[in-house]
C-alpha cells in the first residue's frame, strides 16, 4: 500500500514536469504582451521595453523556461499582473474554497447516485428502476451551466431561500453553507446520473456472480446480501469511474465558480485568462493539474482499499 503510493508519486513527477512546460508554452502562445499589460495602456515604448527586459522576456524561450522552473522550485510563481500580489498567495486563497465546493458537491451526490443505482438494480425492470434511470439520463444530458442557471433562478430568485453569489465563509459556518448550497447542488447534480448508472450496471453484474449465490446459501438476509456482497464489490468499478471523471469534476467546478462568482481556482483561472494575467494563469493551470493528479491518487488508494487483489506488492 505504501509502496503503491510512493510509486504513484514518482509516476506523477514526469506528468508534473510536462504540465509545467505545457502551461508555460501555452501562455507564451497566447495573444497579448505581458510587458505592455504591466506598463499600462499609456506607457511609452521605452518603458515597455524596459519592463520587458526586467522580466526577462527578451531572452530566448529556453532561458525563460529555465528561469521559470528555477523560481517554481523555490515556490515563487511571480506576481499577478493585475493585483500585483504574489501568485502563490492568490492561489492559496482560492484553493480552499474550491476544495470545499468539491467536497460539498460530492458528499451528497456520490452517495445519492450509489443509492439510486443500487435500488434500480435490485428493482430491475420495475417502474422504480425506469424512473431512476430516466432521471439519471436527464441529469447526464443537461449541461452544467443550464442546471446552475435553473437552480439559481428557482431557489435564488423566485423562492429567494438561498443566496447565489459569492462565498459566505468557511464550510462550517451557517453563512458558508448557505452560500455554497446552490453551487454544490449544481456541481453535484451532474455527478448523480453517471454514478447511478454505473452503480446500477455494476450491481447487476455482481448479483449474477457465484459468490452472491454463496452469500444467499449462507442464509443471510437479502439486505445483507445486497449491501455486503453485491454493492460492496460493485463499488470497485464505480470508484474507478469517479476517478475517470476527475477532469469532468474540475471542469464543472470552473463553470460553477464562474457562474456563481465563487472565489475558487476555477474563477481565478477564467479571470486570469480573460485579463491576460499570465503568471496567475500559469499558476492556476498548475494547481488544476495538481488537483487532477491528487484526485487520481485518492482514487487509486480507495481502489486498493476496496479490492484486496490490487494490493499485491
Amino acid at each position: 500500500m505504501i509502496n503503491a503510493l510512493v510509486n504513484r508519486l514518482l509516476l506523477s513527477v514526469p506528468v508534473l514536469i510536462g504540465v509545467v512546460i505545457f502551461g508555460f508554452l501555452l501562455i507564451k502562445m497566447a495573444p497579448g504582451d505581458p510587458a505592455q499589460i504591466m506598463a499600462g495602456p499609456t506607457a511609452t515604448p521605452e518603458v515597455v521595453a524596459q519592463i520587458r527586459q526586467q522580466m526577462g522576456l527578451d531572452q530566448p524561450l529556453l532561458v525563460q523556461l529555465g528561469r521559470y522552473a528555477e523560481r517554481l522550485v523555490q515556490g515563487d510563481l511571480g506576481r499577478s499582473l493585475i493585483s500585483n500580489r504574489p501568485v502563490v498567495s492568490e492561489l492559496a486563497a482560492a484553493v480552499g474554497p474550491t476544495v470545499e465546493l468539491m467536497i460539498a458537491s460530492l458528499i451528497w451526490a456520490v452517495p445519492l447516485g450509489i443509492g439510486m443505482g443500487t435500488i434500480a438494480a435490485v428493482r430491475r425492470g420495475s417502474w422504480v428502476d425506469r424512473t431512476i434511470m430516466a432521471i439519471s439520463v436527464a441529469g447526464v444530458s443537461l449541461p452544467i451551466f443550464f442546471i446552475a442557471l435553473v437552480l439559481m433562478q428557482f431557489l435564488g430568485v423566485t423562492l429567494q431561500i438561498l443566496p447565489f453569489m459569492g462565498r459566505g465563509g468557511p464550510l462550517w459556518t451557517v453563512d458558508g453553507l448557505r452560500h455554497i448550497a446552490i453551487p454544490a447542488l449544481s456541481l453535484g447534480l451532474i455527478f448523480v446520473g453517471p454514478v447511478a448508472r454505473m452503480t446500477r450496471s455494476s450491481v447487476l453484474e455482481v448479483l449474477r456472480l457465484d459468490h452472491v449465490r454463496t452469500a444467499r446459501a449462507k442464509g443471510l438476509t437479502e439486505r445483507r446480501v445486497i449491501l455486503r456482497h453485491a454493492l460492496r464489490n460493485a463499488l470497485i468499478p464505480v470508484v474507478t469511474l469517479i476517478g475517470l471523471q476527475a477532469g469532468y469534476l474540475l471542469g464543472g467546478a470552473v463553470v460553477t465558480e464562474t457562474i456563481f462568482s465563487y472565489p475558487g481556482i476555477g474563477r481565478l483561472a477564467v479571470g486570469a485568462i480573460l485579463s491576460s494575467d499570465f503568471p496567475l494563469a500559469q499558476g492556476t493551470i498548475l494547481v488544476l493539474a495538481l488537483g487532477f493528479i491528487l484526485i487520481n491518487m485518492i482514487v487509486d488508494m480507495l481502489y486498493a482499499i476496496l479490492d484486496p487483489r490490487a494490493q499485491k506488492s
Binding site: 459468490h211 449465490r213 452469500a215 446459501a217 449462507k218 442464509g219 438476509t221 464489490n233 479490492d307 484486496p308
Partner: peptide
C-alpha cells in the same frame, strides 16, 4: 433462510469464484 447454511449446507461447483474476493 434459517435452513440455508443452518440445517442445510451447500458446496458449489465453482470453487474459484464461490468465495467473495473482497473479504478474508
Amino acid at each position: 433462510r434459517k435452513l440455508r447454511g443452518g440445517r442445510i449446507g451447500m458446496v458449489f461447483q465453482e470453487p474459484m469464484t464461490s468465495l467473495n474476493p473482497v473479504y478474508t
